[in-house]
Amino acid sequence: MGTFSGYLLIFFARIADVSMSTFRTLMVVQGRRVQAAIIGFFEIIIYVMALGKVVNGLSDPGNLLAYALGFACGNFVGITIEGKIALGNLFAQVILKGTQNEELLNKLREEGFGITVVEGYGKEGTRQILNIALNRKDLDSLKKIVYEHDEEAFITVNSTKPISGGYFVPIKKK
């Protein structure tokens, strides 16, 4: 194998294994044991292959450079792909001005969002607080709808793992 093709092998192997590592970590956090184990199996095979190539050629700084560049690009690629796939669930809390938000509530419910409305009181008076469980891939849609109604809405989001009950639409209607 030529020197340049060896660099490419190391580079692309690291992109693959680091991207897989990103997904495996997400699967572990979400409690998806089987998927994490399968991804981890292939991830480590690729990792050991790339590392072996570097260790066997330590006298060539190009191997180390390809390894490091592959690692950096793998992080970028893994995060980008994961963001597009958007696996998992979120819990959003939306704080709106005032209490006259029926139009927004109806629109969110029409789009398939399950909402629990709580009344709160802050520095500037009474507010409606919307508690919403949603799929991660629906976050942009939620933000768009909310900000069309209230540009100053305060939105916080946390990762969540539903245990039982509640209103969770597996596939959002379009």
Rank of each mutant, 00 (worst) to 15 (best):
127 R>G: 06
112 G>S: 03
157 V>Y: 07
31 G>S: 07
94 V>R: 09
68 A>N: 09
78 G>K: 00
95 I>G: 01
19 S>R: 06
111 E>F: 09
36 A>N: 05
151 E>T: 14
124 E>N: 11
63 N>L: 12
6 G>R: 11
140 D>M: 10
145 I>F: 02
36 A>D: 03
57 G>Y: 03
118 V>W: 13
41 F>E: 14
134 L>K: 05
5 S>A: 10
111 E>H: 13
132 I>L: 12
69 L>G: 15
35 Q>R: 11
146 V>M: 01
147 Y>N: 07
163 I>W: 01
1 M>L: 13
97 K>N: 08
152 E>I: 06
113 F>P: 11
96 L>T: 09
116 T>S: 14
135 N>P: 15
33 R>S: 14
142 L>M: 14
88 G>D: 00
4 F>N: 13
27 M>W: 06
89 N>R: 12
160 T>K: 01
39 I>W: 11
172 K>R: 15
58 L>G: 09
168 F>G: 04
6 G>I: 12
31 G>H: 07
86 A>V: 03
38 I>V: 15
82 E>L: 10
37 A>H: 05
30 Q>D: 06
90 L>K: 06
87 L>V: 11
35 Q>M: 12
158 N>M: 05
44 I>V: 15
56 N>T: 14
123 K>E: 12
37 A>K: 04
139 L>G: 11
141 S>W: 04
86 A>M: 02
167 Y>S: 06
2 G>F: 06
73 C>L: 13
41 F>Y: 14
18 V>D: 01
58 L>C: 07
168 F>N: 04
39 I>S: 11
112 G>I: 09
51 L>C: 03
22 T>Q: 06
133 A>T: 12
166 G>R: 12
44 I>F: 09
158 N>H: 05
114 G>H: 01
4 F>I: 15
171 I>P: 00
140 D>P: 07
156 T>N: 11
19 S>V: 02
66 A>P: 08
29 V>W: 00
107 K>G: 02
139 L>D: 13
123 K>Y: 08
129 I>F: 07
110 E>W: 12
48 V>M: 14
141 S>K: 14
82 E>R: 01
